[in-house]
Amino acid sequence: MRTISYSAAINEALHEEMERDEKVFLMGEDVALSAISPATAGLGDRFGHERVRNTPISELGFTGAAVGAAMAGYRPVLDMRRIDFMMLAIDPIANQAAKLRYMLGGQVSVPLVIRAPEGGYSQNGPTHSQCLEAWFIQVPGLRVIVPSDPADVKGLLKSAIREDNPVLFVEYRALYSLEGPVPEGDHTEPIGKAAVKREGADITLIGIGSQARGCLEAAELLAGEGVDAEVVDPRTINPLDVEGLAASVRKTGRCVVAEEGHKSGGVGAEIAASVQEAAFNSLKAPISRVAALDVPVPVHTKLEAIVLPSTEKIVAAAKKALS
């Protein structure tokens, strides 16, 4: 199979879905100029600047506008540049997009995709490094997707664009240059299905987004010490495939959950709670969490490394769970 990068896979998905459905259009800050981001390169030239539309720095305005356009029959895809900027647009996402169908008794649907690149390891500091997907699993009515490799980011983005509901589509900046195999052609992935990324028998490592990579690297290191780790990626966290995760934990009896977001109230906390409800009798050790420390993400490389999760931290948590 051919190999392409995570950002090229996003780009392919956008090209293919805009080609397939003329109701799909892209909107956001600096999306029209190819040189700005590899994820959107070439789209403005191919589809014109009506459908690949630069916006003012106006997150509340253009996100609300996307909700309106979605209600009126279009399928907007927003580019948030960074999830940190999306904080200016929580009202149209949480109060409007996610609730309108329910609140209006099913009269409308809101087929909107919000692409939200996020994350650290890039010395961008407290307001340009956050992972905020945990906030949004508290919002009923919103799909939340967290793809960790090129094949999933392409397949899930295509599915998200075809979904008749609002989707928060998280992209991990640390993964943008990651290369991986991606099938040719119309490759889609199902929303709501976890995937086993590496099979193993001794412990389950559940990795969200960038930390699915960390878990795969940790599994390699653990293999060198005779530990056979299974890596499972939930891929979507609303809906969360609890059964898919629990099935692995029933097999291994041990579990570490790793995420790049903060530990308190995090996605890992939700997964740990759900998995123990479903597989308590199979657990031989407490489920442990690896996450960013509960402090802002500092700029300095050395300090950032202290705050953010790492392969070593996942290995250490796994060893503790195995001891």
Binding site: L60, G61, F62, T63, G64, A65, A66, V67, G68, A69, A70, M71, A72, G73, Y74, P76, P92, Q96
Partner: peptide, 10 residues
């Protein structure tokens, strides 16, 4: 108001 802008855009 932003939603109205979006309906206008549609």
């Amino acid at each position: 108001m932003p939603m109205a802008a979006g309906i206008g855009l549609a």
